[in-house]
Design a protein around this nucleic acid. Structure first.
Lengths: 103, 103
DNA sequence: GCAATAGTTCCAAGATTCTCGAACTCTCAT
DNA sequence: ATGAGAGTTCGAGAATCTTGGAACTATTGC
């Protein structure tokens, strides 16, 4: 079935707000994750555990949601897992230089 | 008198933390203020009222504190008022490109 | 000295955010 | 189908932020 693939709503590039992006990046766990994504290209959720020590899945999921709703990352279903990636081009086009400065 | 001029403690450049800076900038009122400071050079507190409408002095003062403690602005006494300015060089040296991307 | 001005600090209430267990949804394998 | 694996969503309590009035401090002018 094509089906109700658990696709998430991601904000349009034009709708990204600077304050929301900055807020999403202002948390150590989230910032580390974004940097990891920038380096590794794409990750699945299980690989997103912070170095500082493992956190519960639900907590991690909450951080992913914050990043996704701010438009920082993309979260697409891939089989039974999910593929996370940085919305680098979108961010670069909307806020030139911001990502580079943060990474 | 040299005196107990109400000098504030400002964090050293080397101690600035990226997450704190991003958080400080993630509020609309504070971000607007930082942009104004970048354009105007320096302001006194009374001139920092947001365009959206005046806010109580205590609320404004709280935002100034957040920015100051994150190391984004400098707040020095100047007679009976205070002079606010952006710590542009400090920020540029610690987080190159960040300020430019945000302004 | 006294009053006025410029801001900060204090404190309490309200609003967000964070954290995490438990329940739930999908998808793949048997 | 049944079960297991990967993540999300729900709900509640803790922690943090935000707001704003009232009191306080410091400086200038009369």
């Amino acid at each position: 079935m094509s089906a109700k693939t658990r696709e998430f709503a991601h904000p349009e590039t034009a709708e990204l707000e600077m304050t929301s992006v900055l807020f999403a990046l202002s948390d150590p766990v989230r910032l580390e994750l974004v940097r990891r994504l920038a380096a590794d290209g794409s990750l699945e959720v299980a690989e997103c555990q912070p170095r500082s020590g493992p956190i519960p899945k639900s907590t991690l999921s909450h951080h992913l949601k914050t990043l996704r709703e701010a438009g920082v990352i993309r979260n697409v279903p891939q089989g039974r897992q999910r593929s996370l990636s940085l919305r680098r081009e979108d961010l670069d086009s909307r806020f030139p230089g911001l990502l580079d400065a943060v990474l």
